[in-house]
Amino acid sequence: MKKEFKELTATAVPLPIENIDTDQIIPARFLKATSREGFGDNLFRDWRFDAQGNPKADFVLNDNRYSGKILVAGRNFGCGSSREHAAWSIHDFGFKVVVSSFFADIFKGNALNNFLLPVQVSEEFLQEILAAVIANPATELKVDVPSQTIELVGSGKSETFAIDGYKKMCLINGFDDIDYLLSLQDKIEAYEQQAVKF
């Protein structure tokens, strides 16, 4: 599941709803698995399927005009619980990037730890992207990690996005935090010796 991420040019799926919480992304009743795989089947479960499990025609993931590796969503995406299953389900469904004008902290960290890139843009640019994608599902977005830019392909419009320098290095090289933390064992043990203890 994990691999390096440098750049991506792809079509996008528009989901112009604000405050999409982790219970919408993956409802708690689907958190009973003990592996990381297969959560994509239940991504946005209660918006995507009715109580009988039939696809709801008016939900964008069931609208075959829209597809792609980039999810574009309203502000405050991923608020609520710390369940990493939210990031797993989005990634497992096939998305590599989520674009929004604001992300909840825990979701953002969980996404990066799974090489799912959260790209935060201005509210104006988000609305422009949403309008373009909704009007023309073939619209592409180009996301480049080294230069930290996102471009609305063909419009000449782009924005830079913020990413922590350490996390950027991890994404580009496919490293994760465990590798780094394990290399610090001596320092961690030295810290333990001098730490305040009761």
Partner: peptide, 10 residues
């Protein structure tokens, strides 16, 4: 504070 499962492993 709350953490994700990758962080639980860390």
């Amino acid at each position: 504070f709350g953490i994700g499962t990758s962080q639980v492993a860390m």
